[in-house]
C-alpha cells in the first residue's frame, strides 16, 4: 500500500466561504509524541462532516480540538490554528467554558449524569444561565432528539435507567438544550445495537437542519449514509515506533466513496484495510 505523505487535498473550494470551523496546519502532541500532524480543513455551515479512518489515525483527537477538550488532558498540546467563525479558538480572548456551550459534544459511550432525565437535559441550561422556560426547553430538546414520546411520563426517573440507545439520545438532547451551533459526535453509535444506531442516524438527518455536525465514525456505511462531506485520515509509523495520524483526503462524501483521488482512500473505503 503506497500512501502519500502529504495531505494536499483539503476543503472543496465552493464551501470555503461558509466555514464555521476552520483548522489550519494543526499538530497535536501528547507529551513529546506527535499524535496528528498537518491537518487543515474547513467545516461548512449546516453540513454533516464525517471523519473516517483506521484506529489511531487521530480523527477523535482532531474532533476534541474543536471544543478544546484536549485542554483537560495535561500532556496534550495543540499547534497551528483553529478558528470558529473566524476567531482563534485557542486565542487569549476565548474562554473554553463559554466556547463549549456553543460547540456541543456527544461521546462514544453514552454518559448520562446520575440524575433524572429532566435534570440531565436541564443541566447545561441551568449552569449557563438560561433565561427562558426550562420545562419547555427540556420538552423541546427531548422532542428534537426523538426521545420525548418514550420518556415524557418518567422525566423524574434516573437517566441511567434508560437503554443504551435511549441514553445516547438523552445525551444528544442534553447537548442541543444549550443551543450549540456545532455538535461534535465521537463515534456516537459504536456502543449501540443496530436498531438504536438507525434511530441516532435518523436523528442526525433531522438535526442537520439546524446544526453543523462533525461525526467521527468507524463505520463507513454510516459515514456514507449520514454525511455530506467526508474526511479520510490515515496513520503512518514514525521512526521512533509510534504512530502519527494525518488527513489524507477531504471531499464530498460521494466523491470520497466513489471517486477518491488518493490510492489510500480508495483502499480504505473499499475495505482493503482498516
Amino acid at each position: 500500500m503506497v500512501s502519500t505523505n502529504k495531505s494536499y487535498v483539503t476543503t472543496p473550494e465552493d464551501l470555503v466561504t461558509e466555514a464555521v470551523l476552520r483548522a489550519k496546519d494543526v499538530n497535536v502532541y501528547y507529551g513529546s509524541n506527535l499524535a496528528v500532524r498537518d491537518v487543515s480543513l474547513d467545516i461548512p455551515y449546516n453540513q454533516v462532516v464525517a471523519f473516517i479512518g483506521p484506529s489511531g489515525c487521530g480523527k477523535s483527537t482532531i474532533l476534541r480540538c474543536f471544543n478544546r477538550m484536549n485542554d483537560l488532558v495535561a500532556s496534550a498540546r495543540v499547534q497551528g490554528k483553529i478558528t470558529f467563525h473566524g476567531q482563534d479558538l485557542y486565542g487569549s480572548g476565548v474562554d473554553p467554558v463559554e466556547m463549549r456551550r456553543r460547540i456541543g459534544m456527544v461521546f462514544q459511550k453514552p454518559n448520562p449524569f446520575p440524575k433524572s432525565i429532566y435534570d440531565n437535559v436541564a443541566f447545561g441550561a441551568r449552569i449557563n444561565g438560561y433565561t427562558g422556560d426550562l420545562d419547555e426547553l427540556v420538552e423541546d430538546s427531548l422532542r428534537k432528539s426523538a426521545l420525548w414520546d418514550e420518556v415524557k411520563d418518567k422525566l423524574k426517573d434516573s437517566g441511567l435507567a434508560l437503554s443504551g440507545g435511549q441514553q445516547q439520545r438523552l445525551c444528544i438532547a442534553r447537548a442541543i438544550a444549550i443551543s450549540p451551533e456545532v455538535i461534535l459526535m465521537d463515534e456516537p453509535c459504536s456502543a449501540l445495537d443496530p436498531i438504536s444506531t438507525l434511530k441516532v442516524e435518523e436523528l442526525i438527518h433531522e438535526l442537520k437542519q439546524q446544526y453543523t455536525i462533525v461525526i467521527v465514525t468507524h463505520n463507513m456505511q454510516q459515514a456514507s449514509r449520514v454525511s455530506d462531506l467526508t474526511a479520510f485520515y490515515n496513520a503512518e509509523a514514525t521512526e521512533t515506533g509510534g504512530k502519527v495520524g494525518y488527513l489524507v483526503e477531504y471531499n464530498r462524501t460521494e466523491v470520497i466513496f466513489q471517486n477518491p483521488t488518493q490510492e489510500a482512500t480508495q483502499a480504505y473505503v473499499s475495505g482493503r484495510f482498516g
Partner: peptide
C-alpha cells in the same frame, strides 16, 4: 416549539 437562542443564555 420554542427554540433557545444564544441570547437566551
Amino acid at each position: 416549539l420554542t427554540d433557545a437562542k444564544s441570547s437566551d443564555f
